[in-house]
């Protein structure tokens, strides 16, 4: 019973993660300048990666319930991967935006363009 629930939950998380990932990636492709694109990239890093890893963690929990003890280490590693991603991705986004600003890139604004 609880395994079925976990299985459905993992389905839902992975599909949600894929949704965020693809939407964020399309944003990376279509948004007008680096800073807005960085915003979209942050979404893939947090929600996309987070939900995908959550779904995989549910799968490992199901595996543990089936008696696969080696899945404990997988679960721990997934948690660590998520934690480190949460640390490093904002740092690199910050560094990148900073580098772009320092080099004199102007953020895009909607002021003088009517079509965009």
């Amino acid at each position: 019973m609880i395994e079925t629930v976990l299985d459905y939950a993992s389905w839902a998380s992975i599909l949600g993660g894929l949704f965020f990932m693809v939407v964020g990636t399309i944003g990376v492709l279509r948004l007008p300048d680096v800073f807005t694109r960085l915003h979209a990239a942050g979404m893939t890093d947090t929600m996309g990666a987070g939900l995908l890893i959550l779904g995989m963690s549910f799968q490992t929990v199901v595996g543990i319930m089936h008696g696969e003890t080696s899945y404990w280490s997988v679960l721990i590693r997934l948690v660590f991967v998520y934690a480190f991603l949460m640390f490093t991705s904002p740092i690199s986004t910050h560094a990148l935006a900073r580098a772009a600003i320092v080099s004199g890139l102007e953020p895009w604004t909607n002021d003088h363009e009517d079509d965009a």
């Binding site: 640390f87 904002p90 740092i91 910050h94």
Partner: peptide
């Protein structure tokens, strides 16, 4: 002036 980098690096280096 890059506090974010310094603090984040300080936290991450022991883990690495």
């Amino acid at each position: 002036d890059l506090v974010v980098l310094r603090v984040g690096t300080k936290i991450l280096i022991p883990f690495i």
